[in-house]
Structures are given as structure tokens and as C-alpha cells.
């Protein structure tokens, strides 16, 4: 079962909720955690995995064999992104504009184009002390497209557990989504079974929550809401949830103690163990809902 933790607005507590949910789930289930916020991945700061594997990822960009090229210009004609151009007796490739779609490769009448990996980021993976299989995508600074990294991340398969390892429990995947409501959020949600939306009860939280609810609905995914920093702002989020048939599954109050613990890098359920049963209930509620 795959659970996505998303929010719309940044800084509402996605990583706080996702990491605590993973910690509680790992007590009984086999958990795989994917940090899908490739621009600002932070879950490792809370789960402390030993990241012993690193794989460079990116997109396949064209390389033109100058001896075979006849400068016919077909590649430039089919490229929708102006990433390849024929100027006189030269075919130029602009890696930064290339989307790696392969169209130029297939359409070259001389088969003069091959492809090579242009690295845009890395997939780091490993395990936490609690046995959570962990992977994160990290986009390189100066790069523009996170989605290809995200696609690779979703394909990541953890090393099989050692022989004799306890294989009981359910297989759960928790994905920590990026903020916003554009492409990378869709890619994070694609193929998931449930979307847990973390928001704060403010006009900004509500406005951006509506954007991600629209994506979840478009993809036909069931969703529920966690209200974080409950007590600040107003009641508009709760009213919206009621009229939109979105269950509020957990409320975490605005408490300075919680804010301080999270600031220092402690998972919520570790800093405040009273939340462990709350997260257990949250998890069982999600699993039961999806299986129903």
C-alpha cells in the first residue's frame, strides 16, 4: 500500500507527519520511505538512515555522430524544445533544454544519434535503525527538472532483507511529497493508494490545500486531512473539509514544545510519545479505508 503525504503550502508539516507515520508503522510493518521532495529533501534529517548507496540519475540526451550526420535538420524539426539545432555543417545540442524524450534519436534518418546520461541528481538509499528502507532523490543545484529524478526514485527497489529477517507485517510505502500543486506533486501521487494532506488552519493553508485536493480527485485517490498547528488562524479549513467530504484524521495543536523538538530534528512521536497511539490510529484508519 502506498501513502502519499502532501500539502500544497510548504512548511505545514508534511515531513513531520510522514516521518512519524513511518516510525510508528515500522514497529509492526515493513516500511519503505521515499522522500520525493527532490529540491528540498528533509526526511533523512529526522529518520537518520545510513545512506550507503548513491546512484546518479538524469535524462538521456542526444549525442550526434558527426561522421554520420548529413545536417538534414530532421532532429531540430521534431524537437519541441529547441534543444537541438543545425547551423551550417554543425549539429548543436543544448542539454539544458533537452527533455530526454528520444524523438530526435528515432527520427534521424542516418541513425547518427545515440544517447548518454546527463546527470541531474542522485538517488541516495539505505536503511534506518528501525529497519525502514529509505531512499531520497536529490536534484543538483542549478538543475531545472525534478520529475525525471522522481520517476527513477519511484522505481527504486530496496536490497532484500538478510536471510532469517522477519518478513511479517504489511508492505507499506510512504512518500513525502514536494510542496506546491504542479507536476512533481502529480508524479508523486501517481500510482499511490491514499493521499494524506497536511495543512495549517490559515487562509494560505486552505488555498493551497484546495489545489492538491483537486489533483487527488483528478487521479481518483481517496484523501484525508491532518490539521497541524491547530489553534492558530481560523476555522475555514475544517468548514471546507466538512463540505468537501474530506475526513479530518488528526489534529496536532500549535505548541511551542512541539515546534522546538521538530526544529532540533526529532521526529514528533519520539519527542512527544503521547502521539504514538494517535499515529497508530491514523495508520489503521488509512489502511482500513483503502482496503474497504
Amino acid at each position: 500500500m502506498r501513502i502519499v503525504v502532501a500539502s500544497g503550502k510548504g512548511g505545514t508539516g508534511k515531513t513531520t507527519v510522514a516521518t512519524s507515520l513511518a516510525r510508528v508503522a515500522a514497529e509492526r510493518d515493513r516500511v519503505r520511505f521515499l522522500d520525493c521532495d527532490v529540491e528540498a529533501p528533509n526526511a533523512a534529517l529526522f529518520l537518520h538512515p545510513v545512506l550507503d548507496s548513491h546512484r546518479e540519475v538524469g535524462i538521456r540526451v542526444p549525442r550526434v555522430d558527426a561522421d554520420a550526420c548529413t545536417y538534414c535538420g530532421r532532429c531540430a524539426e521534431v524537437c519541441q524544445f529547441n534543444a537541438i539545432a543545425v547551423v551550417g555543417q554543425k549539429t548543436l545540442v543544448f542539454d539544458d533544454l533537452c527533455h530526454g524524450c528520444g524523438s530526435c534519436t528515432w527520427n534521424c534518418p542516418e541513425q547518427a544519434i545515440s544517447e548518454q546520461l546527463a546527470v541531474t541528481g542522485v538517488i541516495d538509499s539505505g536503511q534506518t535503525a528501525e529497519g525502514i528502507a529509505f531512499a531520497q532523490g536529490v536534484m543538483n543545484v542549478g538543475q531545472t527538472m525534478g520529475v525525471p529524478i522522481l520517476r527513477e526514485l519511484k522505481q527504486w527497489t530496496a536490497a532484500p532483507p538478510p536471510v532469517g529477517h522477519d518478513l511479517r507485517g504489511r508492505a507499506l510505502e510512504i512518500r513525502d511529497a514536494p510542496p506546491g500543486a504542479s507536476c512533481p506533486v502529480v508524479e508523486t501521487m501517481r500510482g499511490a493508494d491514499f493521499v494524506l494532506l497536511v495543512t495549517e488552519p490559515t487562509p494560505f493553508g486552505l488555498h493551497d490545500l484546495k489545489q492538491v485536493v483537486a489533483i487527488a480527485r483528478e487521479l481518483g485517490l481517496p484523501a484525508g486531512v491532518v490539521i497541524n498547528r491547530d489553534g492558530i488562524g481560523d476555522d475555514a479549513v475544517a468548514a471546507y473539509c466538512a463540505e468537501s467530504d474530506l475526513p479530518i484524521l488528526l489534529r496536532i495543536p500549535m505548541e511551542r514544545r512541539i515546534a522546538e523538538a521538530i526544529a532540533s530534528g526529532q521526529p514528533l512521536v519520539e519527542a512527544e510519545p503521547r502521539y504514538r497511539p494517535e499515529f497508530q490510529t491514523l495508520l489503521e484508519h488509512i489502511v482500513a479505508g483503502v482496503n474497504a
Binding site: 528540498a40 528533509n42 534529517l45 543545484v141 542549478g142 526544529a263 532540533s264 530534528g265
Partner: peptide, 21 residues
């Protein structure tokens, strides 16, 4: 930024990006 482990981590990456340009 904010003085949290996440804020600090992401600030570094944002600063590198701004300096890159």
C-alpha cells in the same frame, strides 16, 4: 529561513542556487 534542521538544510541549497546565478 527558520532555525530548524530542515530550514538550515534547504537554505544552503537555496543560497547555492542564488549564487550559481
Amino acid at each position: 529561513t527558520e532555525p530548524t534542521v530542515s530550514g538550515i538544510h534547504d537554505l544552503r541549497r537555496a543560497l547555492q542556487t542564488v549564487q550559481h546565478f
